[in-house]
Amino acid sequence: MALQGQRFAFTKILVGDVEAEVGFYSAVLGLVTRHRLPAGEGEEVILCAEGHEEPSLVLLHRPHQARPEPGEAVLGFVVDDVEQVVRAAEGAGGVVRVAPRVVPQAGVTVAQVEDPDGHLVELLQRQ
């Protein structure tokens, strides 16, 4: 039984190059920085969708902490144009892992890219 007001709120990932990551998610998905907060020896950067105050993605930078292996988590984003977002990802230092492909039984086009730190990002466009 879910309690009123409880819901999934955001995803937090550990990153190495926080500025490259902020630039990537801004250029590729239009996320904007809402807050930069100290976090021990590092910082947290809270990114939100344009026009929203609630966090979508939090980048945690701790310079002396090892990052998890890329692929440990997959970040999923619904986008208007997968092809355009894939091109933006390449231009922002990302790598295409799976080129856009139509999945007719699901009514979507999907692609996967890696951000500059190697985190896997799945892009989904509804048909």
Rank of each mutant, 00 (worst) to 15 (best):
D115Q: 07
S56R: 15
V98M: 12
V121E: 14
R67W: 00
V74C: 15
V85G: 07
G71E: 03
Q127I: 01
Q4A: 14
G76R: 14
L123W: 04
G42H: 03
M1Q: 09
K12H: 00
Q4M: 13
L47I: 09
R67F: 00
R34G: 03
V78Q: 10
C48F: 02
V15N: 07
E54M: 10
E19H: 08
P70W: 04
E83Y: 03
Q105P: 00
I46V: 15
G93S: 05
G16L: 02
P68D: 05
V74T: 15
Q4K: 06
F24P: 11
S56A: 15
G93E: 10
D117F: 04
A73L: 11
L3E: 13
L47P: 02
V85P: 00
R87N: 11
L60I: 02
A9L: 12
L60S: 09
V79Q: 08
A106F: 09
P38C: 09
D17E: 13
V110H: 04
A73E: 13
V96F: 01
R7N: 05
L29C: 07
L75S: 06
P55M: 06
R101F: 02
R67T: 02
M1V: 14
V15F: 10
V58H: 15
G51E: 08
E90G: 09
G94Q: 05
H119K: 07
H119T: 04
Q65I: 12
D81V: 01
T33M: 08
E50I: 03
F8G: 08
E114N: 08
L29K: 10
E72R: 11
G42D: 05
R126T: 12
Q127E: 15
G42F: 04
G91T: 06
H64N: 07
G91W: 02
D80L: 06
R67D: 00
V113I: 09
Q84S: 14
R126M: 12
L37Y: 01
L60A: 04
I13D: 06
L75A: 10
G42I: 09
R62C: 03
T11L: 04
L60E: 15
